[in-house]
Amino acid sequence: MFSVMPLRAIAFQCLFLLLAIAIEAAVLREALKLPYRKSVEYAASINLLSTAVGWLIFFSLEPLVPLNLKFQLINCIFFDQWSSSIAAWVILAGFATFFISFLVKLSGLDLLRLLLQDKAEKEPEQETQVEKSRRYQNTVRARKNAREGPSRANAVLIANALSYTAILLVLFIRIIVPADTRL
């Protein structure tokens, strides 16, 4: 029962997570002007979240796939055989994964900020905002935007794109390395 184990999948997932967290932490730190520790924590949280969501989507879709596609899936997982009929599906799934993970990471970041907000920090901010007149509020917001650089969505999009590029590069290296010298 324990002779066949998905250890390579786990190793690859760990590698990709570390890669993505490192890259996205750097991007978030630059774009959102976060301290080092916070940027790594944020990047780790959103990447772990998108990985977990990805697994849950996989497990909920797996019982629904038709038998033919299931054989292809088994072929890919056990034998790394990619037939041309599945290639189109893989490319489609790749696009879907990119945009779903972007949405998950963006909403994950918002949720995380909400969750980590201290009540003590939040209240004075609200008070000062009430005090400020509307005329000034717009200019303050514009200045704040200018100071923060691109918006949060933009930052997450760039971070996601860069980490996916890195992961694709690793996968490409895996393809060109001869099979008998691999992991």
Binding site: V4, R8, I77, F79
Partner: peptide, 16 residues
């Protein structure tokens, strides 16, 4: 499937 070789797989290893 167990009778086949898993060398190329990116997901699993067979310890037996």
């Amino acid at each position: 499937i167990l009778a086949d070789r898993f060398d190329r797989s990116a997901f699993v290893i067979n310890t037996a």
